[in-house]
Design a protein around this nucleic acid. Sequence first.
DNA 1: AGAGAATGCACCC
DNA 2: TGGGTGCCCTTCTC
Length: 533
Amino acid sequence: MGLTRNRRKKEPEIVIARDTESSSSEEEEEEDDDDYPLSESEKGDEAVKIELEKSKAKGKAPITVKLKKVCKVCKQPGHEAGFKGATYIDCPMKPCFLCKMPGHTTMSCPHRVVTDHRILPTSHRNTKNPIDFVFMRQLQPRIPPIKPPYVIPDQVHCAVIRYHSRRVTCLEFHPTRNNILLSGDKKGQIGVWDFAKVYEKSVYGNIHSVQVNNMRFSPTNDDMVYSASSDGNIGYTDLETGTSSTLLNLNPNGWQGPTTWKMLYGLDINSDKGLVLAADNFGLLHIKVVGLDCNPVHPELLLSCGNDHFARIWDMRKLQPGESLNDLAHKRVVNSAYFSPSSGTKILTTSQDNRIRVWDSIFGDLDSPSREIVHSHDFNRHLTPFKAEWDPKDASESLIVVGRYISENYNGAALHPIDFIDSSNGQLVAEVMDPNITTITPVNKLHPRDDVLASGSSRSLFIWRPEEKTEMVEEKEKKEKKIVICYGDSDKKGKKQKRGSDDEDEDDDMFSSKGKNIKAKAKTTKSTRRTKA
DNA sequence: AGAGAATGCACCC
DNA sequence: TGGGTGCCCTTCTC
């Protein structure tokens, strides 16, 4: 298909006269001459002239350095890629960064939903024209006659905390206590945050030694949580005390090299059968199984996904290699696969080919997905993998949330929104973003009961809520001077507030509206931990 | 303020 | 076939 990455083994020769940038040039320059001979075609290219004025006192003539304008992506002259202000210009020699098809760039991609943020407020974008609606009803007569309105957390208001020293890898809401958010990070720490009492948090660093990949609460004891980690352990932790026991250790003999080291990724609980399920990097089929999901209605059904490009449906009673009930093919690694939260009949997957796939019924034709939604969430080794997740409160089982990789220019700021998508039609229902949050937000979780979205972005956690609730919180926090609410278009407020705070030196917490402006005083933890390879 | 580091996947031979 | 190589929008720290 059109998904090859068009790699060029041999890059064209680049000659940059007097270039200071040495890291990107692969070949050693023997010649130091300024007069780089331009070919006929290249002569038309504008050469950038940088005039370096040596000290005026010495009265030396300015030195003119010619830099050939070269694309930093494909290393070819004649065009440039990269940020122009807040807008990223794609390299035209590469396939579209969004849909991966050649022949156009992200800017002109037909799958690019947003074209101008200055004209259309996001909330208006979900208006369907009546004909579309009727048409859709005819095509899908089984959708609920009136979709319950989505309640999307207001993008303007959020709360921020930073206590992780590595990037956030997973989030989980407490099953009964509404304001408790659990977060795991790349270092193996697990945080418990009471986001109503903003300052109340605990961080447990002794449960795992490397990244936490998934967490699940015990169905029988609200205070106990299971966690799967790349250290090969399943921890079983009391959140009140932080005391943890090891339910499973796949590496009892310690580190014997990367070929034997086992890592646990997928984790889910089958309460019907009283099982805790976990998948390691070798898996039953000797592939890395990264996700697991038990069907909420049919306890014998299990869904797995991984880097073999498949999501697979299993019968719990027949978990043998090659015995899966269905194999759902993808073009790239599958980051996540989830049954729909109430009926369990739909499947939602996120794949690194920049497509979200939806199967409308596990009892129907599973040969190909019911829909593929092109969405920017593909792979970057420095980011926690994106996972599109269902809204557990949406009775129609169509609303999903997923972070976006590529940025858009929002009034001069390059931001990466969190997208709410109606998975029944692929429509972008809302984008949540804040000018103070400039980092990418791959980890998102919708609250099981409240209209709350929790997000993990780099090392920070965000709670987004509807405006009414937030204003209460906001008032409270203003008094306490403990948190800064992020305002949609004035980060000044937030900064002032933080600067005025007397609590700055209290501990290594980070309550800020803009991590960039306020340096964390978190202990700089030397990464002495062993990595897997 | 600019370099360096962390480190997953795909492609290549 | 497996190790070597390179990577298009990262983010933080020094």
